[in-house]
Structures are given as C-alpha cells and as structure tokens.
Design a protein around this nucleic acid. Sequence first.
DNA 1: ATGTAACCGTTGCGATTGTAACTATCAAGC
DNA 2: GCTTGATAGTTACAATCGCAACGGTTACAT
Lengths: 144, 144
Amino acid sequence: MTDFDLENFLPYRLYQAAERASEGFHRIYGERFGLSRTEWRVLFNIGQYGPLSASALSKRAGFHKTQISRAVVRLENKRWVERVAGHDDRRTHDLTLTGEGKRNFQELTQLANEYSASLLSDFEHGDATSLLAQLRRIEACIAE
Amino acid sequence: MTDFDLENFLPYRLYQAAERASEGFHRIYGERFGLSRTEWRVLFNIGQYGPLSASALSKRAGFHKTQISRAVVRLENKRWVERVAGHDDRRTHDLTLTGEGKRNFQELTQLANEYSASLLSDFEHGDATSLLAQLRRIEACIAE
DNA sequence: ATGTAACCGTTGCGATTGTAACTATCAAGC
DNA sequence: GCTTGATAGTTACAATCGCAACGGTTACAT
C-alpha cells in the first residue's frame, strides 16, 4: 500500500492553481474584451514579443500551431492583429498588433498587473519572485 | 506605457508549468493505461476520496458535472469504476473503484510519486512543501 | 397530499481542441 | 533548372468541452 496524497501531487496542484488563476483572470477580461483564454495568450505573446511568426510563437510558448492559426484569425477579424507576409520567407507571416490591438493590450496589461498583485497581495516580494523561479525550474525539468 | 512581463505574470506562468507537468505525466500513464487527463483526474479523486457522489467530487475538485458524468461513463466501460445508486438519496450515485480499478490506481499512484519526485529532485524538502503551500494560498485567494 | 422550488446527473448542441493530411514555399544536391 | 526533403501555416475530421435544457428525485410549505 503506497501512501499517496493527491492534494500534494505537484501536477494536480499546479493544474488546480492554474485553472483557478486563469478562470479568475478570465472573469476580468472575458466579458469586457470578448476574448477566450487562448486568444488572450496569443495576443499577449504578440504584444510582448511581436512582430513574430506563428512558428516562433509556437516554439516560444509551446502552443500548438492550429491553436495559434485559429486564434490569429479571430484576432484579425477583430482588427487587433495584422499578418504581414514575411519577405525573406513567404511561408511565414509576421504577426503584429494594430493600433487598436496595442491600445487593448495596454489596458489588458494593466488589468493583468492588478490581478497579479491581488493574487500575491499577502506574499512578501521575495516569496513571489521565488515562487515564479520555482515554477520555471519545474518547467525546465520537463523535456519537450 | 506600463511595464509588463508576461513571463512573470502568475496566471500565465502557472498555466505553463501546469501544462508541462500534466503533459509530462500523461506521457507516462497515457499509453500504458489508455487514460485521458480528465479521466486520470476523476479516477484519482475517486480512488483517494471515494466512495463519493458526482456532485461531491465536483465540489471538491471544481470539475464540471458533465466532465465528471462523461469520464465516469468511460471509466465504467473499462470496469474500473462502479456506480451504486445512493439509498439515502436516489438522485445520487456513489462512485467507487472496482478491484481492477484499485489495482490500476495503486500502480498509478506509484508512477505519480516517482514523477513528483523527479520533478522536485533538485528541490530541498522544505522548498517543495513551501511551493505546494504557496500554490494552495493562491487558490484560496480566488472566489469560486 | 399537493404544489413549488431546489437539486442530481444525463444529454443535445454549438464551439473548441489536437491529429493528420494538405498546399505552398524554401533549401540543398546534382 | 529540377528533384527531393523539410518547413510554415491552413483545413478536414473526430473527440471533447461547457452551456443550457431535460427527466427524475427530494425538501418544504401549504
């Protein structure tokens, strides 16, 4: 008989924490901006690291290329994102935010900073940074 | 111009860590046991806390009731889970593992313990427990 | 007992997902 | 220039998801 504690099983605990945090943040931006979670993630990556191609985004963030392709279509329809055919490699498209996309991204980053602060409100600053560092260490543990 | 760092935005970092960890563990049990992630989560909750009803499971783990309903159907078809109509309240069904379900659950908990250990291999014991505690604190921050 | 409201779990539906196949483009060898 | 193999991104398909509606059961007030 093994002793096993589901609540302290790291993948389960991470899933629960991530699910709650994503859901909580979605409640803030979801209705107001009409974005799904995946759209949000794609938008933020483009806003933060763009212009970049879909495959670069896929490598960076680990998203599936179909997920990106479809999220970009939706963001393009909202006129928040533009695709410009790469002139070095015409298979790729550089993804960038439009003016409206940038404005919304700005607003969203403010909401994000506020939400992050509220989640970590009773954390010491050092605890918060060490938590983030630990999460990165765990991610690094896992082969692609 | 706000300064915002996606990599240190907690919901994003949590999502990434959870995704990698779930995917990594899925690579271990997925093929061998033929389980999806949601099936795994339902199975483990029944194994750890069963017998319990679907709604009790939903409250405990925060899963959607349709997710549970469908996962239970699949686990029942594998003869790993049994549903017994509650005799106090005949709307509910007590979910329990069958003999075979228990055997597989045992094997899976061992794999889970090994995987958890490998993820935390270069963590001090104290760091690991504090990480789990911090995750729970964050979850507690979020209203249902 | 009877009606009303609340609850449990299932199912239909539209939306979203990943896998696999596809088109288009590029790079390398000859 | 032409073929071969790899890569970028889209699309078809089946599976899964959450929402809403449903049938069946319970609790409670009248």
